[in-house]
Structure formats: C-alpha cells, structure tokens
Simulated assay, not measured.
Amino acid sequence: MRMFSVFPGYRFFLYVVVVVLMVMMSLKMVTSVKAVKVTDHQAMFSLMPTVWDRHDPITAGLFMFKTHLANHLHASILVTNTGNGRGTVNLYPADASSAPTGGASFSSRDAELTDVGSWIKLSKEKVTLDPGKSQSVPFEITIPVNTDSGEHIGGIIAEDVKPLVAQAKKIPIHIRARWAVPIVLTLPGPTHEKLIATGILPDRGLVYQHLMIGLSNAGNIRVKANGSLQILDDHGHLIQKHALQYETLLPRTSIQNRFYIQHKALGVGHYQAVLDLYYGHNKVLKYRTEFIIKPPVKDLGGAIVALVKLGDTDDLWSLFAPWQIASGAGIGLILLGFLGYGLTKFCLKVKHQLSQHQEH
C-alpha cells in the first residue's frame, strides 16, 4: 500500500493552483510588454545596407532602387552581431506583403517566391559572428523583362539558427528571431493608386465579437489610409463609429484586418457597415455593405473540432480574446486542482479502509 504515499496532500494542489494563476497573470502582463531584455551570452543581430546616404537616415534601414527592366543590380548587406554571445543566422530573400494593420510582412524561409524575393541571389546563406563583429554579404538582383511598372517590394531576412532567450517580467521567452531589410524597387512607367474594399463580415465563432475588413491595394505604389467605420442597424440608425488607420499598404497585396467590436456587443440581427477611407493623394474609398449577426454557436466544441480538422489552427486562438484564454485556463486549472484534491481524499480513504481491514 506504499503506492498511496506518492499522492500529495490537498495543500499541494492548492499551492499549484495559486502559483499557476500567478504565472497566468504574469503572462497576461507580458502580452503588453513592448521590449524584452536579452539574457547573458546571447547573439543578437542587426541588418543594414553596407553603403547608405548619411544625409538621408531612411537609407540606413532599407534599399531603394530606381531601375529598369532586365537590369542587374549589385549591392551588399551588413550583418552585425550586437549581442554578447557568438551566434549564427540563416540569410534568405523574401517577398513582402501588407501586414493586417499596414506595414510590411515578409514571407517565411520555405515560402514560394513570386516577386522581388525570386529576383535576389545572395552570395552567402549563413553567417556566424562573434559579439560586436560584422560581415558584408554581397547580393545581386535581376529584374525580369516582363515586370509591371511601379513599386515592387521584398527583402533580405536573417533568421536565428538557435532560438533567442529573452526576459520579459522575469519570465524567460524563447524567440525564433528574424531581422529584415526591405528592398524597394521602382520601375519606370505609369503609376496609379487604387484601394478597394473586398468585404466586411463577422468572423466565425463570435466568441469575442469582431468583424473582418477586407482591403486590397490594386494600385502599383504604396498608400496609407485613414478614416472611419460606421455600424448602422437595419433601420439606418447609427450604433457605433470607430476611427481607422492603416500604415503603408503595399501594392498588389490584400489584407484581412480583424476589427474588434468595442463597448457593447452587437445583438442578433441585420446591420450595415459604412467604410470611409482617405488614401494616397486625395483619393477616397467609400464602401457600404450589409452583414448579419447570427445566434451564438451552441456546440462550440464541435466548431473548434471542425476548425482543427480544417487545419486552421491559427484561427482557432483568434476566436478568443487574450483575457478569455487566460480566464479559461485559470478555471480549468482550478477544476484540475479540485479534481486532484478529491482524488487524494479518495486514495487516503481507501488506504485507511485497507489498513483497518488488515488489522482485523
């Protein structure tokens, strides 16, 4: 009967619950931390053009070429280890697309390249550096003869071979760090600005209510946009109005921006969305559409299983707000603690009964 002695007492489970909840609270605070502190003996890298114009600081952070078709460009990138430990990075070219709220998002190392990334040829694909050391890596860009006019944007990425260990609120975080230098190529020919809306729909699940705003930069140069989103009921009465602002939207790319409904959730029914955006050089986008808020999904478990079967695991977590994930995990741990407490009491009771039986 010694096996029963391995079960900890109820105090242990209570301690576990308290500690885990404290960790959950810390993790919640970590989500708002904007900077992390690198631990000792870690490599950390920076990328910049080897040659840049000191009178134009923006050229220290990206390459900008005005070029023509079938041209061969030669340049080099400076890789520097700014950390306090030796480290290695993989270098690779990437295509750029618009991030959900604007700005550039770069393709992953194994992504299929179709634009600027496919035009870049690096002289090296891996660099190892001691702390404080730098190395210049030459590369070549070949512009295809059938490329459209306007701007084409890609970049060169340095990705840590080993995960970076950082500290945020004294909690270690393992990060696969990536550093990027954008490359903006401007080809001769007519330019045009054209931002279009591709739809406004409630996102599936509606556990934490939000709308998906679809935008596409159908032009051939970068644009910024700002304006408002109005939500009207089926009688045309204004319910909510929110300001919107998008940083640079890259040409020939689209986004799906998740917009969270604030203050009071929308009830079941029919609604209208009115989108007004001002972009580029005095351009205006006006878009109106209808959408329906349906009753909440009763079988949430089935919906989650369906998402997992579809392989859309990234969207699975987007169904919930961060505080809902933390609260749900906390409640689950509390229930687990009570389950462990009950199991411990049951085992102790069985042990006591067996001891009495042996005495008799």
Results as ranks from 00 to 15, higher is better:
Gly61Pro: 00
Leu285Met: 08
Gly301His: 14
Val297Gln: 09
Gly332Val: 06
Leu78Glu: 14
Asp95Ile: 01
Gln356Glu: 15
His152Ser: 03
Leu91Ile: 07
Thr80Glu: 07
Leu211Lys: 04
Thr50Arg: 07
Val207His: 11
His242Leu: 10
Gln356Asp: 13
Ile213Arg: 01
Ile58His: 05
His68Lys: 12
Gln42Glu: 13
Gly154Phe: 02
Arg2Thr: 08
Phe4Thr: 11
Thr248Trp: 03
Thr101Phe: 01
Arg11Asp: 07
Leu238Ala: 12
Ala177Glu: 03
Ala111Ser: 15
Met29Lys: 13
Ala218Thr: 10
Leu185Glu: 00
Gly132Asn: 13
Val184Trp: 00
Gln324Gly: 08
Arg258Ser: 08
Leu335Asn: 05
Asn257Ser: 15
Leu266Tyr: 11
Leu73Phe: 11
Ser327Asn: 08
Arg258Tyr: 07
Tyr15Leu: 14
Gln262Asp: 14
Glu359Ile: 11
Lys351Val: 01
Pro163Arg: 09
Asp40Gln: 12
Ile156Met: 02
Leu316Ala: 11
Gly189Tyr: 09
Asp299Gln: 12
Leu335Cys: 14
Asp40Thr: 07
Tyr278Phe: 11
His360Thr: 15
Tyr10Leu: 08
Leu21Gly: 05
Pro296Met: 08
Glu112Tyr: 01
Glu159Asp: 09
Val19Ile: 15
Arg258Cys: 00
Ile261Cys: 06
Leu343Gly: 15
Val165Ser: 06
Asn226Ser: 13
Tyr260Thr: 07
Gly328Ser: 11
Pro322Leu: 12
Ala99Arg: 06
Arg54Leu: 12
Glu359Cys: 02
Gln42Arg: 06
Ile58Tyr: 12
Ala225Trp: 02
Leu78Ala: 10
Gly85Ala: 10
Pro295Tyr: 13
Ser26Cys: 14
Tyr271Arg: 04
Gly102Ser: 02
Lys133Ala: 14
Met44Ile: 00
Val274Trp: 04
Val350Cys: 06
Val19Gln: 01
Phe291Asp: 08
Leu310Met: 14
Asp276Glu: 12
Asp53Gly: 06
Gly236Ser: 09
Leu316Pro: 00
Asp299Leu: 08
Ser254His: 05
Pro295Met: 11
Asp276Arg: 09
Asp115Ile: 00
Asp53Lys: 06
Val305Cys: 02
Lys241Ile: 10
Gln209His: 12
Lys241Met: 11
Lys37Asn: 05
Ser118Arg: 08
Ile153Arg: 00
Val79Trp: 02
His174Cys: 02
Val36Lys: 00
